[in-house]
Design a protein around this nucleic acid. Structure first.
Length: 280
DNA sequence: CATATGTCCTGAGAGC
DNA sequence: TGCTCTCAGGACATAT
């Protein structure tokens, strides 16, 4: 998403229109009037990212934060439907005349923040290191003492920022780690494998511009489908043969109310620690 | 403090 | 056919 709207760097914001949304009035903070006043006339200096949010930085040093959650899209082209268009930002001085935020389910949000608010909302207190920048050692240090299942821990944005449910399954299959294995039972070599798989899977998904699943919701900034769904190893493939061993059917289980997909041949549960048993 | 569960939202699909 | 029910997974509030 960040890469998709990079072309608007240098453009100036001419206008902002927020759709009235009775269900979720807190679509925008601050309130529309203040939002408009602080944004109109501003030049866009940079497009950044913090975890799963897109950050549009302005010359004033304020930043617009786009948080798509499940079905939110950041667009430079016409949206999938005129319904569910939440925010329209009119631009000048560049190729693109509009930046849009469209969100079918309305779980996403857009807010404007000062640098101080940015740190408070998205600083190290709230978000872990970025998944594309974390080192293997840092990853292990932050997660290895947890008793939670590794799949559940990977989704904790305070521990590690940027991994979502789909990619957690993909990462653990590539790393050959069982999703239900408690973090504190993983061996150093497994942490290295997970770290390598995080980079591999996320970078590949970025190259293919994301996963457009059955409901067709995800689109890139030009409202085109992603391609990574054709490269999913396990996600949404329950019952199909595992792409690694070709022998076992991919399983679907539920962890923390979310689907997990894995191969029980390639991703063996970790052995219980021998030390504990031997000590008795 | 560390984990676990409930909540919000919409539209698709299942089942009857 | 048309109704109800369940589910999808982001982040955060509340509970254990």
């Amino acid at each position: 998403m960040r890469r998709g709207i990079l072309p608007i760097v240098g453009s100036r914001i001419e206008d902002v229109q927020a759709a009235d949304c009775a269900k979720r009035p807190i679509l925008i903070a601050p309130k529309p009037a203040a939002f408009r006043r602080r944004v109109i006339g501003q030049k866009i200096t940079e497009i950044g990212r913090v975890g799963k949010r897109v950050v549009v930085r302005l010359a004033s040093s304020d930043a617009m934060i786009f948080e798509p959650r499940m079905t939110g899209l950041v667009l430079l082209a016409a949206p999938p439907t005129i319904e569910h268009l939440r925010l329209k930002v009119a631009l000048s001085g560049g190729k693109h005349k509009e930046l849009l935020f469209w969100d079918r389910r309305g779980l996403g949000l857009v807010r404007l923040v000062t640098p101080r608010e940015f740190d408070k909302l998205y600083g190290l207190e709230k978000l872990g290191p970025d998944a594309l920048a974390v080192t293997s050692v840092e990853l292990r240090d932050r997660l290895a003492t947890s008793r939670r299942a590794i799949k559940v821990a990977l989704l904790d944005q305070r521990a590690l920022a940027g991994v979502g449910n789909l990619y957690a399954s993909e990462i653990l299959h590539l790393a050959r780690v069982h999703p239900a294995c408690p973090c504190d039972q993983l061996r150093p070599a497994q942490w290295q494998a997970i770290h390598a798989a995080i980079l591999e899977v996320l970078n590949l998904a970025i190259r293919y511009e994301g996963s457009t699943l059955g409901d067709g919701t995800y689109r890139n900034a030009l409202n085109e489908q992603g391609g990574f769904q054709n490269h999913h190893r396990v996600y949404d493939r329950a019952g199909e043969a595992c792409p690694s061993c070709g022998k076992t059917q991919i399983q679907r289980i539920v962890q923390a109310q979310r689907s997990t997909f894995f191969c029980d041949r390639c991703q063996k549960p970790g052995r219980k620690r021998r030390a504990a048993a031997a000590g008795q």
